[in-house]
Amino acid sequence: MKAIAARVAQAVGLILAVVVLNFLLIQIAPGDAATAIAGDQTASDPEVIAELREQYGLDKPVVVQLGIYIGNVAQGDLGTSIWFNEPVSDLLLARVWPTVLLSASALAFAVVLGVTIGTIAARRPESLLSHGITVLALVGFAMPVFWTGLLLLILVGVRYDFFPVSGIHDLDFSGNWLESWLDIGQHLILPALTLGLVYLAQYSRLSRASMLEVLESDYVRTARAKGLSERSVIFKHGLRNGIIPVITILGLQFGAVLSGAILVESVFSWPGLGRLAFEAVQRRDTPVLLGVLLLVSVSVILANLATDLVYRIIDPRIRVSGSTNG
């Protein structure tokens, strides 16, 4: 319990550091929101720029701006979008669930399929299948996510028109909630597949390697000697241990999945946090960008905490050593 409390305290400090660092990094970048807005309007009047800077507090010293921002965040106020003149929290709320849906779908696809084919391959490591999976992993891992996205988009979305290529709904969609989810599901397939393919490659390879080791271990040999069925040996004894590295990586990779989502959401016009962040950078919409970064930081930290907890559930040795130590 103490260990968890310490970790939470560590996380809070980390979040504060992330806020300050992000704020300063954005300040270092040339140009500001006033320039971006004026550029969007092809405006050339210095008064206009000066008014914009004053309006959004950009004329204040950086330290003052930072102080104001931290004070507001501490009170739960993430500020107002300079671009849209809407509360950042509203924008985040509207965009967070599409990203969660996309990331969760992509990870679910990657983990389930990756572990399955990794396990199958581990049973016969010298088979054609096993080597095929290694090659598959290499190809999948080598393909940049935006490139895979464009490829699927052109091939599956445009040339053969199997799936919608843009957005979360058809432009002319109207229907009840069930039809709405079906429509979302159709739009989700290509982006989730794009994002998931990279991780599918990693998880299949990881679980293959892990299962290879586990299936050679004494307790698996004992289980077989006891006459247990192969299914029972694999699922009850092998997979339970073999999947631990996958879960570890899953937690650590949560942040990476979100960063991958930025590219995927931009390619497929998916209305999530990634696209919001990408556009906020272009527009120097600092409050929105900081809001996204804060949300992502918290999510990553929570994901890592969750990983620790899941670990304890899956592996009694960790639970026991954790309780002894804690």
């Binding site: 979305g157 445009v158 919608p164 290529v165 843009s166 432009l171 931009s266 390619v267 990408f278 556009e279």
Partner: peptide, 18 residues
């Protein structure tokens, strides 16, 4: 009016009849 982040989305949307 569909607002998209990328010019390629416009081209693909036209291609697809969206």
């Amino acid at each position: 009016i569909d607002i998209v982040p990328d010019p390629n989305a416009v081209i693909l949307g036209l291609e697809n009849g969206d």
